[in-house]
Design a binder for these strands. Structure first.
Lengths: 256, 256
DNA sequence: CGGATATTTGAAATCTCTCAACGACAGTGG
DNA sequence: CCACTGTCGTTGAGAGATTTCAAATATCCG
């Protein structure tokens, strides 16, 4: 593994507090792999042998039932995934596949758990990381159960706007059908939802979306820090300080 | 606090591994409180000063947006709640209120975090506990996004049947409107969903539900361990062994 | 018993999905 | 260069699911 990559993940809150020796031990058995787009890294129900860390590209987490599938999250670097399954040595509840050419670090789950048991600082960091993921999911369920399709889209657009720097024109980071699945609707319905937001100053040109009248759009969307993940997971803020940072000034990741 | 109560929570996986002295320190500042039904213990957005442990009764976790509210989970003893917020020292994302007269142990969050930092075994136990909660939420989102109302109800009934011992007649543990909110539908729709399940041998008499033809009902419901929490959180099974225990033989809790 | 709350039922409105067709576009191979 | 092909996105129409509003029971509790 390249030293530069190691340094990148070393800065993650998950690893930043642990002793150098333990970090080296943890990463010595790790693989840094390149995958083309559309590669399924793991299927629902599979035993989980690695903790995955997305370094480059993007990864979709999805769930399936009865020949239907839905996108649960779309990850951007740098994000860990299937951490909870690794902690519990359980089977995956979600499939994972690359949406584009991606570079992924794979840390053997066995060693991860061993070091979690040996290094108290790391164990606390794991607890905090999983807690952050948990809270992301709580927001996701509330978003899904309390808002209709157009409201979810409007809030998605406002969240993206914040993450992309606040300019009026944003770029959709994924295919629209993937976005539709993430938002819990069909591709056709997403298209209609975009059309319905035209009344609120949303102009769509392919992957470019222009928000011309943010005030009425916000009046419709009613964004709320208790439902919207304006900061991506791992943005680094926890604790009381996190209360004051919404909406955050700088968020580059497109994670869901 | 009564010794009997302390012994009960001592047996939870979350606390069972920690040193006696630390456990005593953790619980020395705790309150055991009785609340009548319908008491709101905390509102969304509130700072979280305690970890709550439900000892008796039942508690509803709910989310609100734009004058609508939804039930995210219904807890039964013995369950912890708002653990993730305590770990991160963050504000609550869910409101909590008692559905009936309940006894709740409140552990000061400050001391909880301090001991989590001092006791490596406890830190790992927290990581595992939060991971289990996380996986419960993943199932919940998949259930919500992939199934329609009647399918969610059918699976709920089958899950309850397992948890209540497998007999043909089960008792709904909550009011129907609460159940409707948990299942992500209106009370009227739940009533219609019950009516539609009559074709599959579901007979409703007030809170009693008789499942006369489980085979067709299962053919409709398609229960799946990747979506259904047949075991309540904290049932005690983790690791590879958990794969073999579905559906589990004994599940007494009614947690969602 | 009386009053409040829950539940059920009906009817209409709204939202969402499915199916089908169409146009735009990129890549392929002649 | 140009059909051919496949994917993606959009649009329309109809079906289905869900919600809303209203009214009619049913149930619970003092």
């Amino acid at each position: 593994m390249r030293t530069a990559d190691l340094e990148r993940i070393r800065t993650l809150q998950l690893f930043s507090g642990m002793a150098e020796a333990r970090f080296n031990e943890l990463t010595s058995g790790a693989y840094l792999q390149n995958f083309p787009g559309g590669t399924t890294l793991m299927y629902e129900g599979d035993p989980v042998d690695f903790l995955y860390i997305l370094m480059e590209g993007s990864v979709e987490l999805q769930g399936t039932w009865n020949d239907k599938e839905t996108t649960l999250a779309i990850l951007r670097p740098i994000s860990t995934f299937i951490l909870a399954a690794v902690v519990l040595d359980a089977n995956a509840l979600m499939s994972a596949r690359t949406l584009e050419k991606s570079q992924i670090l794979m840390i053997p789950a066995e060693g991860f758990r061993r070091i979690m048991n040996e290094d108290p600082i790391f164990a606390v960091a794991v607890a905090r990381e999983v807690s952050g993921c948990y809270r992301g999911l709580v927001r996701s369920i509330k978003n899904q159960k309390l808002r209709n399709g157009a409201e979810r889209l409007a809030n998605y657009l406002l969240t993206q706007q914040v993450r992309q720097g606040g300019a009026a024109i944003i770029t959709l980071p994924h295919e629209k059908r993937t976005l539709a699945s993430l938002l819990g609707m069909t591709a056709e319905n997403l298209s209609r939802a975009f059309a319905s937001l035209a009344d609120y100053g949303v102009e769509v040109n392919g992957p470019e979306v222009k928000i011309t009248r943010p005030v009425p759009l916000k009046r419709l969307a009613k964004p709320n820090p208790l439902l919207d993940n304006h900061a991506p997971p791992g943005a680094g803020l926890t604790g009381k300080a996190a209360k004051e940072m919404w909406p955050p000034a700088n968020c580059l990741s497109g994670a869901a």
